[in-house]
């Protein structure tokens, strides 16, 4: 800023709305009490079990957010408040944690989640085209959340995708559409491309 800085004061009009008893639109959020949040009992029990696994209950924040996401499809503000009440932390704390991580969604997303790797090895072998194919096939369907993703740790099956938390590859671009249709129809997804079914590279 040094070269551009101009020390002449600029007078702007004082807007009285900036100082007159401004009322916040919504209440601030401290640690909610359990009776205020109507946490489903299964969720509460789940989070309490998770907290019990760690020497410090706050360690359960990521697992608890996973539980919220499982229950509601994404980390809804209500779900975060419920987890916060059980964990006795502020909802802000949990939202801050959730928003740090790519797999936790603080905005609504479709129930089928497809992450297509676009990182170096997959990019070299057609990851971008695969992503396009998935996107085209899922276009306009709110049940699907398709996203490009950083390296998923499966460069051996490049290009690949994670579909509802299971890995598939190597995929032809056309298989994007196939997988989406299979998901829509409730069929098994790309059975022959599942990572679980592969042998060791050195044995092939």
């Amino acid at each position: 800023m040094s070269p551009d800085f101009d020390p002449t004061p600029v007078r702007l009009p004082v807007d009285p709305s900036l100082t007159e008893g401004r009322v916040p639109g919504r209440a601030e959020e401290e640690i909610p009490e359990l009776h205020e949040v109507a946490c489903p009992p299964e969720l509460q029990e789940r989070i309490e079990t998770l907290m019990g696994r760690y020497p410090d209950r706050r360690s359960a924040s990521i697992p608890a957010l996973w539980a919220v996401q499982e229950r509601y499809g994404w980390c809804t503000p209500e779900g975060i408040r419920q987890a916060a009440a059980v964990m006795r932390v502020t909802p802000a704390y949990l939202e801050s944690v959730a928003s740090f991580y790519d797999l936790l969604h603080t905005k609504r997303v479709g129930s089928h989640r497809i992450e297509v790797c676009t990182n170096i090895s997959c990019w070299m072998r057609g990851g971008d085209e695969l992503l396009d194919a998935f996107k085209a096939a899922a276009e306009g369907d709110e049940d699907f959340f398709v996203t490009g993703f950083e390296c998923l740790g499966a460069c051996d099956i490049a290009p690949m995708a994670s579909i509802d938390q299971r890995y598939y590859g190597p995929l032809e671009a056309a298989e994007g559409g196939v997988a989406i249709e299979q998901l829509r129809g409730g069929a098994e997804v790309l059975p022959e491309k599942a990572l679980a079914k592969r042998g060791l590279a050195g044995d092939s």
């Binding site: 170096i120 090895s121 460069c155 051996d156 099956i157 490049a158 590279a201 050195g202 092939s204």
Partner: peptide, 13 residues
């Protein structure tokens, strides 16, 4: 782990 432009990407010990 070997990947990218090779014929048999994979893990080799």
């Amino acid at each position: 782990s070997i990947s990218g432009g090779v014929q048999r990407p994979g893990n080799y010990e």
